[in-house]
Nucleic acid binder design. Sequence first.
RNA 1: GUGGCCAUAGUUCAGUUGGUUAGAACGCCAGGUUGUGGCCCUGGAGGUCGUGGGUUCAAAUCCCACUGGUCACCCCA
Length: 416
Amino acid sequence: MKYRSIKGTKDILPGEVEAWQHVEGSVRRVMQRFNYHEIRTPVFETTALFSRSIGELTDIVTKEMYTFRDRSDESVTLKPEGTASVLRAYIQNNIGEQASLTKLYYIGPMFRQERPQAGRLRQFHQYGAEALGSQSPALDAEMMIITLEIYRALGITDTMLKVNSVGCQRCRPRYKDLLIDHLKKIASQLTPDSQSRIQNNPLRVLDSKDEGDQRRLRDVPLMKDFLCRECSEHFVEVLSLLDEGGIPHQIDGKLVRGLDYYTKTAFEITSSALGSQDALAGGGRYDLLVEELGGKPTPGVGFAAGIERLIMVLKKKELLPSAFRGPRLYIVSADKNARRWTFQRSMELRRHGIAVEIDYLERSVKAQMREANRMACELVLIVGERELSSGSGTIKNMTSGMESSVALSQLESLFT
RNA sequence: GUGGCCAUAGUUCAGUUGGUUAGAACGCCAGGUUGUGGCCCUGGAGGUCGUGGGUUCAAAUCCCACUGGUCACCCCA
């Protein structure tokens, strides 16, 4: 084969798209209920936007971005996540000046140049939301609830919500020192990966998947126990909002997200129906990020969720609707004359909003019938010399097999 | 970036210890009524056996390389 899709990219074919429409529909309905407004940003941005917001030392920035120079030698990057673009648009368009609180959501493709595997592609799709302008713990809780609400609307109720607080500029540095001290003591027993992280990203040592590491990390100090007063109060409030709302969740003191911009709340939702890549969604608060990107100091909180992974779960749980709908009417042409008539008549019917299909391959009546059956048409009308001269024909119901006669000029009335 | 597994018709796969024109099922096309589908029957089209080397009298089958897919690690959606 001469041309193939790029590694890690996929065609979403008919038969599969229905699942996507199903998911997107639920996302839009739920977002609307919570009064979030859709925003669509470009698929690519200036590279610096991402390296600055996501963090220079993160995996995404150091080894996963699709970055290239365009013809005017500007470094551009296909967006690896949604938040940075949304915030850039928020700042650039002075959206914060028009209202004190802004609630936005998006659905779109993201790009990360990683080795593909189950649940991971180079072009994948996310939906997500951002609430800018308030420090209220209510919004932190709302993000988690929206995420779960979308899953509930789709029939998924057995996800796992993990919550943590990663502190702020005031309390995190103090904790980091403490953590590094502790890690240094046990460094020799940790995996090389973890050892090298002690210096440049100590927090990430915590979520090492290595069992040996985890055993040695059992009594490591956790951020949530060293929060400043403000962060602590915020965290407690988020948790009690979840409790009062009856939202099942688990506090995970070792939960660290792969993006540097989080402050206070961080959360993640996983599904046991997935393989090794089991995170369905993740999010958190980022109170410093808008300012970091050149906007006025504005607190924010958001989340992002993967569509491919969600569809994997829906498939596994057989929660996808099998509603394949064929055209309502198939007009079979018995001869060449009829074919011309059929073409024109089908156009009129379509103009009236009726889904009609006809034959384009000059096939036999039998073959046309088979085709109508294959595409699950509701009704079939056969038109030939007889029908054209008499002005009436027989309509066959393809599920019951019953036939009845209709005037060719009255076909519309069959569908009222 | 590292590693495991895989690579035969449109699809899912079979292919005996290397040995004659590479098979099945489903799908597709046509016929079994002279203008009627689904079920059934018959026939047909469709394959450089991923690509390139090598071993051999002989390779889909053995060896090497490459490419692609897939799963896992790292990390994440």
